[in-house]
Simulated assay, not measured.
Amino acid sequence: MELDEVDFRLLELLSTDGRCTDVAMGEQLGLSSPAVARRRRILEENGIIAGYRAQLSLEQLGFSGVVIVMIELRSQAEQVLNEFEEEVVKCPSMSYCGFISGDTDFILIVHVSSLDEYDTIYRRELSNLPHVAKIRSSFILREVARRSTIPIVFDRARTGRGHPPR
């Protein structure tokens, strides 16, 4: 799908405020609300807009600690990787898991309310995952930045290099 400058401006507005109305966006974009609705629907149908959600404050909900967990497996055989992945998605405290390159096989983000809670999660969830050889944990001391969309997406759009790969 070829995106034009208006599409990128619409995406930028939605990434800032996912509840922004078609009327309000139309006013900012110089379009009618039906034109905005049509563009939004096309972006959704083409998978450019992947969804909408409420951004919860985990800290306000009692989860003030964020732990980056690096897991090394005993083997990288396909069956081992598949078995680990099938089980790690069942961990209720984990918000992100990625298979990565380098010495570590997987990186997880875990949310906790205390060090004691992390100890429990470590013992009940993480140490029981299949094929784990090593677990290393780092605690986030201070959040410096959090972005749902990276600004370079819109910078590239302004320079004409923002089209998704074909």
Results as ranks from 00 to 15, higher is better:
N82T: 15
S95R: 14
I140C: 15
K134H: 10
E117N: 02
F139M: 15
N46D: 13
A133N: 05
G62I: 09
Q55I: 13
I71C: 02
S137P: 00
V80D: 12
I109L: 11
E27T: 09
H111Q: 13
T16P: 00
G98K: 05
L108Y: 04
I49C: 07
V66H: 02
E72W: 01
E44T: 12
I140K: 06
V88K: 01
Q76G: 11
L56E: 08
V144R: 12
C91V: 13
L56I: 13
F63T: 00
N128D: 04
S101L: 05
V89A: 08
R53C: 13
G30D: 06
L61V: 06
E125W: 01
A37T: 07
I140T: 14
M70Q: 15
A50N: 09
L43D: 05
S64Y: 06
T104D: 06
G30M: 13
I71Y: 03
Y52E: 10
A37M: 04
Q28P: 04
Q55F: 10
E27Q: 13
E45Y: 04
A35F: 06
E78R: 13
S101H: 08
F99G: 01
Y96G: 02
E44R: 10
G65H: 11
T21P: 04
T120S: 08
N128P: 00
V67N: 01
I107E: 07
G18C: 04
R40V: 00
S33R: 08
N46H: 13
P34Q: 14
Q76M: 07
I68T: 05
D103S: 10
A54I: 15
S137G: 01
E78F: 14
T120A: 14
N128A: 09
R19N: 15
C97S: 12
